[in-house]
Amino acid sequence: MAAAAAAGAGPEMVRGQVFDVGPRYTNLSYIGEGAYGMVCSAYDNVNKVRVAIKKISPFEHQTYCQRTLREIKILLRFRHENIIGINDIIRAPTIEQMKDVYIVQDLMETDLYKLLKTQHLSNDHICYFLYQILRGLKYIHSANVLHRDLKPSNLLLNTTCDLKICDFGLARVADPDHDHTGFLTEYVATRWYRAPEIMLNSKGYTKSIDIWSVGCILAEMLSNRPIFPGKHYLDQLNHILGILGSPSQEDLNCIINLKARNYLLSLPHKNKVPWNRLFPNADSKALDLLDKMLTFNPHKRIEVEQALAHPYLEQYYDPSDEPIAEAPFKFDMELDDLPKEKLKELIFEETARFQPGYRS
């Protein structure tokens, strides 16, 4: 834990890192770190609560700039109880001085990944967590956004079992017609939660990839272990087919990539493993919904509104309290091709509203 900075004593240090967030945020305490930044909790002297502050230093890398800009653009436009918001952003007053960006968010005690390492969940908890994931996802999908990296560590939890989806750095506007060349190379989302079509096709992607990830998360809540822990690309596919069985001819016809289709045709026939054999203690309604989410063919996979209306979630289902976005989200430009200098300018502009004396 960093010592509390005395008023006016300059930035606090946390594990050798400068955290320049005073005077409003003090009493910093280390939480963890990701690929390009550290997260601390801090005391907000204005709202009198502890908050989470993520320090991001992305400006050396085009990919990190892209992810940072995506996350900020999306989260500043989203407003939903099951999606983490941005409360404040701290950065230098000029673009030349801006080396880091500090993002202030609600402090959540833990995440689903940490929880599943230590606790076996009751059916009631599984049901409530799944409902909140789908409630947040309904809003995301209504904005025409794909999260693309749903996994237990991106689901934040607090002691009252509130759940918030975080990390929109890989999110995209849904565009089933656009052929994202190089899709697989830039697709760094965790393999275990990846839909089979991501490994088999490169053309376009749809909201059904997020539903697949939610199915993987439900299976993990039922058993405290990942359902498809593939060691590499082909191993991942083999794990999936080992449980779902061989795809039907109709399902194979959806695979545009001939090499991928021929690979699947070359494999020995596998039978589907019954879900109640894998999860003998699970609620039968939970397994019915799991089956509809972990469907090989993305066109037959359940959609988020149908999933919310499934009998497993009937005690929570309330369409009048499951809000959607006001308007579909649009990125003005494809960020993939922009140089990091341009992305830095866009991050600077996007964060201006939090600067003292800002006038829109």
Results as ranks from 00 to 15, higher is better:
residue 326 E to V: 01
residue 185 T to M: 03
residue 2 A to P: 05
residue 145 V to A: 12
residue 308 L to K: 12
residue 130 L to H: 05
residue 186 E to V: 03
residue 50 R to A: 08
residue 129 F to H: 08
residue 200 L to W: 13
residue 80 H to C: 15
residue 312 Y to L: 04
residue 34 G to C: 05
residue 14 V to Y: 07
residue 178 H to E: 04
residue 302 I to V: 06
residue 276 N to T: 13
residue 288 D to A: 07
residue 226 P to I: 07
residue 198 I to Y: 06
residue 191 R to V: 03
residue 328 P to R: 08
residue 360 S to M: 03
residue 10 G to D: 11
residue 120 H to N: 03
residue 66 Q to C: 04
residue 190 T to S: 00
residue 136 G to M: 07
residue 46 V to Y: 15
residue 290 L to I: 12
residue 228 F to S: 02
residue 116 L to R: 11
residue 232 H to C: 11
residue 356 P to D: 10
residue 30 Y to G: 13
residue 279 F to K: 07
residue 2 A to L: 15
residue 34 G to H: 14
residue 74 I to K: 05
residue 325 A to I: 14
residue 69 L to D: 13
residue 341 E to G: 04
residue 269 H to K: 07
residue 76 L to G: 15
residue 235 D to A: 05
residue 266 S to P: 14
residue 183 F to T: 10
residue 68 T to H: 12
residue 57 S to E: 11
residue 165 I to Q: 05
residue 299 H to F: 11
residue 149 D to I: 06
residue 78 F to E: 05
residue 120 H to P: 06
residue 292 K to R: 02
residue 338 L to S: 08
residue 186 E to Q: 11
residue 172 R to C: 04
residue 135 R to F: 14
residue 2 A to T: 02
residue 210 D to A: 02
residue 138 K to F: 12
residue 102 Y to V: 06
residue 57 S to G: 14
residue 110 T to E: 04
residue 189 A to V: 10
residue 125 H to L: 00
residue 131 Y to C: 08
residue 242 G to Y: 11
residue 234 L to K: 11
residue 41 S to K: 11
residue 249 Q to W: 12
residue 58 P to Q: 14
residue 166 C to E: 03
residue 320 S to F: 08
residue 158 N to E: 05
residue 77 R to F: 11
residue 263 Y to S: 10
residue 57 S to W: 05
residue 263 Y to M: 07
residue 64 Y to P: 10
residue 170 L to R: 06
residue 22 G to N: 13
residue 37 G to N: 02
residue 36 Y to K: 03
residue 153 S to R: 01
residue 73 K to V: 06
residue 109 E to G: 11
residue 240 I to T: 09
residue 9 A to F: 15
residue 139 Y to H: 11
residue 61 H to E: 08
residue 91 R to H: 04
residue 210 D to C: 04
residue 129 F to Q: 07
residue 342 K to W: 14
residue 38 M to L: 00
residue 169 G to P: 07
residue 46 V to D: 00
residue 339 P to M: 04
residue 246 S to P: 15
residue 299 H to I: 10
residue 45 N to D: 08
residue 227 I to K: 07
residue 77 R to E: 14
residue 8 G to P: 08
residue 159 T to V: 06
residue 13 M to W: 11
residue 344 K to E: 02
residue 277 R to E: 09
residue 334 E to A: 15
residue 65 C to F: 02
residue 77 R to K: 12
residue 327 A to V: 08
residue 243 I to K: 15
residue 167 D to P: 05
residue 132 Q to E: 08
residue 11 P to E: 03
residue 121 L to Q: 01
residue 63 T to I: 07
residue 152 P to F: 06
residue 126 I to S: 05
residue 130 L to D: 03
residue 262 N to V: 11
residue 15 R to I: 09
residue 278 L to S: 10
residue 156 L to Y: 03
residue 26 T to K: 12
residue 46 V to F: 06
residue 356 P to W: 15
residue 146 L to D: 04
residue 47 N to R: 04
residue 186 E to N: 08
residue 292 K to H: 12
residue 96 E to I: 13
residue 176 P to M: 08
residue 38 M to N: 08
residue 283 D to S: 14
residue 187 Y to D: 02
residue 299 H to P: 04
residue 339 P to A: 08
residue 305 E to N: 11
residue 119 Q to W: 12
residue 109 E to R: 08
residue 64 Y to H: 06
residue 328 P to K: 10
residue 29 S to C: 01
residue 17 Q to P: 05
residue 312 Y to R: 02
residue 77 R to Y: 11
residue 89 I to Q: 13
residue 146 L to V: 07
residue 324 I to Y: 14
residue 150 L to Q: 01
residue 126 I to Q: 08
residue 119 Q to H: 03
residue 29 S to V: 11
residue 37 G to C: 04
residue 341 E to A: 13
residue 160 T to G: 09
residue 255 I to D: 11
residue 24 R to Q: 12
residue 79 R to V: 10
residue 114 K to S: 05
residue 83 I to S: 13
residue 200 L to E: 01
